[in-house]
Simulated scan of single mutants.
Amino acid sequence: MTSINIRPIGEKDKPFLWDMLYEMVHIPNDKPPKELLLAMPGIRQWLEGWGRTGDEGFVAESAPAGPIGAAWYRLSDAGQPGYGFVDERTPELSIAVLPEHAGRGIGTRLLRTLIERAETQGYPGLSLSVDPRNAALRLYERFGFRRCGTSGTSVTMLLRF
């Protein structure tokens, strides 16, 4: 089995995070091309201006493949909420693993690391948005995330610490 390293997001990871943002958006049929999807303001806000106060995340990498997954969170304000927005004190998380590396526990490791980081930072919890048809829903439920609302066709979930 290949060794997987989980490390904090660095400046050099920004292009990879945009790739992961595209992978994160679960659209079962007719997913728009990457350039169009990532140009949408509701999508861009998850990464645009990365590095502001409260932005935190991790990259999973393996040798020789390099980065293969990422998980991050950031705070939003009520005036420009994300799809998984709960309140201004609770960061919303994003997570994705390259499809060819899915199903190997990488997402689980990234999520565990991100949750531990958010707890040590003193946040009240983490929120997220997930399409109910996305297999990742079961992962979030295993970690204790509970449904607390909807946004469009997605479910908003919350983990309170």
Rank of each mutant, 00 (worst) to 15 (best):
residue 115 I to Q: 03
residue 122 G to R: 10
residue 121 Q to N: 12
residue 55 D to L: 09
residue 141 E to M: 11
residue 8 P to A: 14
residue 24 M to D: 08
residue 72 W to K: 04
residue 62 S to R: 03
residue 161 F to D: 05
residue 83 Y to I: 00
residue 12 K to I: 10
residue 132 P to M: 12
residue 40 M to K: 11
residue 124 P to Y: 12
residue 65 A to F: 13
residue 25 V to L: 02
residue 1 M to D: 09
residue 113 T to E: 15
residue 19 D to K: 12
residue 104 R to A: 12
residue 137 L to S: 01
residue 32 P to I: 03
residue 58 F to V: 03
residue 19 D to F: 01
residue 105 G to V: 14
residue 87 D to E: 08
residue 13 D to T: 05
residue 107 G to S: 08
residue 61 E to A: 14
residue 76 S to N: 07
residue 136 A to E: 04
residue 130 V to P: 03
residue 156 T to W: 01
residue 151 S to H: 15
residue 157 M to F: 10
residue 36 L to D: 13
residue 47 L to V: 04
residue 154 S to E: 15
residue 92 E to Y: 09
residue 35 E to T: 11
residue 58 F to Y: 15
residue 106 I to G: 01
residue 10 G to K: 11
residue 131 D to H: 15
residue 155 V to F: 12
residue 70 A to E: 07
residue 161 F to G: 13
residue 119 E to I: 08
residue 82 G to P: 00
residue 5 N to D: 05
residue 142 R to I: 03
residue 124 P to A: 12
residue 75 L to S: 02
residue 124 P to G: 05
residue 137 L to Q: 03
residue 135 A to W: 04
residue 3 S to H: 10
residue 14 K to I: 15
residue 16 F to M: 03
residue 115 I to G: 01
residue 74 R to G: 10
residue 138 R to A: 15
residue 57 G to R: 10
residue 83 Y to S: 11
residue 138 R to P: 00
